[in-house]
């Protein structure tokens, strides 16, 4: 808040100094030796000193006014203004930095959210891949096992057929021998074989 005296105040000063001079002159006239000669007068009312008091008051007050208006007050005004500016600037800076910090916090928050989402995606994929892999392995193992089972079944069937063949041969031999013993005559091989087949199908 710099305060400058207006042109009027400066002119007013000239006027004031002029009127002071008039007052001093008037007081000097009042302070004739006859008046100031009275010793009993109360000093603040003694006109003998009016001229000197006014003269020195005019000088000191004018000097004070000049020093204040030219040096002290503009300087103080600029100091206060500068301080207000500094405080305002600091406050602005603080607001700016706060905004920046908030922005950064938001960015961080966002990055964090994204990372979380990514992590979820990765976990999902990993889980799916793992599931698929284990599924495939299971399928492979099952197929292998099935193949082995089929092979074993085939071997069993073959052995069974073979065993059954042996049983038939043995049966036909036994049947021929029994018939030969009972009848005393050996049946022909074709007869025997037909009879055995008949018996086997009957169960």
């Amino acid at each position: 808040m710099p305060v400058r005296s207006s042109g009027f105040v400066r002119q007013g000063w000239l006027l004031a100094v002029g009127s002071f001079a008039t007052l001093v002159a008037g007081a000097a006239q009042a302070a004739t030796p006859g008046l100031s000669g009275e010793k009993a007068s109360f000093p603040p009312f003694d006109p003998a000193h009016f001229a000197s008091n006014l003269f020195w008051l005019a000088i000191t007050f004018a000097a004070l006014y000049w020093l204040m208006s030219k040096v002290a007050l503009p300087r103080l005004g600029s100091i206060l203004e500068e301080r207000a500016d500094t405080i305002g600037r600091d406050l602005d800076q603080a607001t700016e930095m706060q905004a920046k910090a908030e922005e950064m916090a938001q960015a961080y928050e966002k990055a964090l959210g994204e990372a979380r989402k990514n992590a979820q995606g990765i976990a999902q994929t990993a889980r799916e891949t793992g599931a698929k892999a284990s599924e495939a392995q299971r399928h492979a193992t099952e197929a292998e096992l099935a193949a082995k089972l089929a092979q074993a079944e085939a071997t069993i069937a073959k052995t069974k057929v073979k065993a059954m063949g042996n049983v038939r041969d043995l049966g036909s031999d036994v049947a021929v021998a029994i018939v030969t013993k009972l009848t005393g005559q050996a049946p022909s091989a074709s007869e025997a074989s037909a009879a055995i087949d008949q018996a086997l199908t009957r169960g």
Binding site: A25, A31, H49, S52, W56, L57, T60, L67, A72
Partner: peptide, 28 residues
């Protein structure tokens, strides 16, 4: 013939001036 003597009043006016100036000018 006008008595403009430097009196004790004048002295204290000058002291007032000096004190106020010291505070306001030296202080700032």
């Amino acid at each position: 013939g006008v008595d403009l003597s430097f009196t004790n009043t004048s002295l204290w006016m000058v002291i007032v001036l000096a004190v106020v100036s010291a505070i306001m000018i030296y202080g700032s």
